[in-house]
Simulated assay, not measured.
Amino acid sequence: MVWVHELGERMVAEGGEDALWLDTAIEQSEKDGAIVSSFSVATTATASGSGS
C-alpha cells in the first residue's frame, strides 16, 4: 500500500521502506490516489546525422 501526502510544498509517496519525493514549482494535487499536474514541455529542433 502506498501513502501519498503533502509535506511542506512537496508531495511524498511512501510504500514500506521506499519513498518518492516530488519537489517541483509546478502545482500538484492528489486525485484518487494519483499525483496530478498540468504543464507543457517546449522542444527545439536538433540537427541529426553522423557528421561524416
Rank of each mutant, 00 (worst) to 15 (best):
M1I: 04
M1Y: 10
M1N: 13
M1S: 12
V2A: 13
V2C: 04
V2Q: 13
V2P: 12
W3T: 02
V4K: 06
V4N: 03
V4R: 08
H5S: 05
H5D: 05
H5F: 09
E6I: 03
E6K: 15
L7I: 12
L7V: 11
L7R: 15
G8Y: 03
G8V: 01
E9S: 11
R10K: 12
M11Q: 06
M11E: 04
V12Q: 03
V12N: 01
V12L: 10
V12E: 01
A13W: 04
A13G: 08
E14C: 00
E14T: 07
E14A: 02
E14K: 07
G15Q: 08
G16Q: 01
G16M: 02
G16C: 06
E17M: 00
D18H: 06
A19W: 11
A19M: 12
L20V: 12
W21Q: 02
W21R: 08
L22H: 01
L22Q: 00
L22N: 03
D23I: 01
D23G: 00
D23E: 09
T24A: 13
T24Q: 10
A25D: 10
I26N: 11
E27T: 07
E27G: 11
E27K: 08
Q28V: 06
Q28F: 06
Q28H: 08
S29D: 12
E30L: 15
K31N: 10
D32F: 04
D32V: 07
G33A: 07
A34V: 07
A34P: 02
A34Q: 10
V36F: 10
S37L: 15
S37V: 14
S37D: 10
S38D: 13
S38A: 13
F39D: 13
F39M: 11
S40P: 07
S40N: 13
A42T: 14
T43L: 14
T43Y: 14
T43S: 14
T44P: 06
T44R: 13
T44Y: 12
A45G: 09
A45I: 01
T46P: 00
T46F: 08
T46A: 10
T46V: 15
T46N: 06
T46H: 07
A47F: 03
A47M: 02
S48I: 13
S48E: 14
S48W: 11
S48L: 10
G49F: 02
G49V: 05
G49H: 09
G49K: 08
G49M: 05
S50G: 13
S50C: 09
G51E: 07
S52N: 14
